[in-house]
Amino acid sequence: MILGTVSVFERDGIYQIYCKAMQEDGMGSLYTAYEELKNKLEKEGLFDVKYKKQIPKMPRCIGVLTSNTGSVIRDIINVSTRRNPNCYIKLLPVPVQGKGAAEKIVEAIEIMNKNKLVDVIILARGGGSLEDLWPFNEEIVAHAIFNSELPIISAVGHETDFTIADFVADLRAPTPSAAAELAVPNIADIMLELEKYNNRFKNSLKKKIELMRLRYEKCMTNRVFKEPLQKINERYILIDMKVKQIQNSINNKLKDNKTQMVELITKLDTLSPLKTLARGYCLTEKYGRIVNSVTKIKKDDELELRFKDGSANVKVI
């Protein structure tokens, strides 16, 4: 691209350009430098994903490298304290544009690293022209970011601005506010997560206990535990039955004997001479012996006559 005046040499019909300024065609010299450096660093591996450091989930302290005036630091503080009311932010002010800014940024990154002052660094700047953002496209800044042991989140310019710093950083945030969101965990979310763990612990222990209880109950339904006396009762019944059996057989025996006895008594009664006496007969005895024939007596024998209601002594004549 050329800036100048044009004149015509009339005789030959030639146009001449008197050049006052000249620049490469395309996006301009800064853009060319940007593209060149970007390609160079990419080849050197500075953008490689394998070198990206993990951003801590719960940083105790967040370092912010930006201007101590302006809205950027305000935005970062606002978003950070909204997400975590108890967050700890250390601001290390750096110039974010103009001559010498890159050197100051490099120095600040080194200070943070040397003293391990924070857990994560936010390198931030508000929007601006390519010239304004230039310190973030400088090679020394790129190397400082790459060499930083502390993870760095870059948030330079607006969402559409991509600086070299953004490519080298461990994480690129579209805006400073977004950087704060990436660096500061939402405490409410973390608390919820902790609560979830508590519930998981409680539930699994409850489940375990419930399982144990079911096992215990199943055990307890076993007859041995449920009716421990049943076996004994069964034996009692058996004993009772046997005792009854014995009793019955004794009773039967007794009854049999009694029947037999009654029979015998009846028989005896039938055969008893006393019955005959009752009908009016009498029994003759001589010296205690029954006289059953007339030949057994003679004159003057003393006899005893037995009646149903008594006896009398008589003499044979």
Binding site: K90, P93, I190
Partner: peptide, 27 residues
């Protein structure tokens, strides 16, 4: 269970006991 509950309590305590601090580093 006890180990887990204790750890989660320590975590919440750490979050609750952290103090808000916005400071500026002066070289």
């Amino acid at each position: 269970f006890e180990e887990g509950m204790k750890l989660s309590k320590e975590c919440s305590k750490m979050l609750e006991e952290a103090e808000k601090k916005i400071s500026i580093l002066i070289k």
